[in-house]
């Protein structure tokens, strides 16, 4: 196979998806063959509240250009209240993103239910576009991590 040598910028995006809603929503997008950019790589977590803010900072440190966190709609959390904690934690973290030198738009929290395959694809399209427009994120990147 030939390697495609285009100079087009492909962002690296980490998507944390909760097992019960958003990961299932992503599966539904797949079932319905709803395309979204391949730059999105999904990490499955049991609940959005499992995502420690350090995971997000770690991603930026290791060269991610955007991080999106998806969970069940408020009130629908499989664990009753997990996404409420997510909402508060991320509001706090994101409010400090600009201070860290990372554009706030590189981070996002979205609520995607298991029935919202179309929404998942649309959100990912939009997020990937936003991140691609911002270009590479270098502020936190730790060069020691690069081989």
């Amino acid at each position: 196979m030939q390697i495609n040598n285009t100079t087009e910028f492909r962002p690296k995006i980490v998507a944390f998806c909760c097992n019960w809603c958003s990961y299932a929503g992503a599966d539904l997008a797949g079932n319905n063959r709803l395309s979204y950019p391949a730059d999105i790589k999904i990490i499955r977590v049991p609940c959005s509240c499992r995502v420690n803010p350090t995971f997000i900072l770690r991603a930026f440190q290791r060269g991610a250009d955007g991080v999106i966190l998806c969970g069940c709609h408020p009130g629908d959390c499989h664990y009753t209240s997990g996404n409420y904690y997510t909402r508060r934690r991320m509001t706090l973290l994101f409010s400090m993103m600009n201070y860290l030198g990372i554009e706030k738009e590189r981070t996002r929290v979205e609520w995607v239910s298991a029935a919202e395959g179309a929404k998942f694809a649309a959100v990912m399209q939009d997020f990937a576009q936003t991140v691609a427009a911002l270009g590479e994120s270098k502020r936190l990147e730790d060069l020691r991590c690069k081989q």
């Binding site: 690296k12 980490v14 790589k41 990490i43 977590v45 049991p46 609940c47 509240c49 499992r50 995502v51 420690n52 803010p53 350090t54 995971f55 770690r58 991603a59 290791r62 991610a64 499989h78 664990y79 209240s81 997990g82 904690y85 934690r89 991590c145």
Partner: peptide, 30 residues
């Protein structure tokens, strides 16, 4: 759910099957 793992200020709490180290290893690989 793992909510406690994030709330823990000293990092004592972890979640089997989705350990901090494991998720960070996934982040690094991606």
């Amino acid at each position: 759910c793992g909510c406690c793992t994030v709330a823990c200020p000293s990092g004592a709490m972890d979640l089997d099957g989705f350990k901090n180290q494991q998720i960070m290893a996934e982040v690094d690989a991606i």
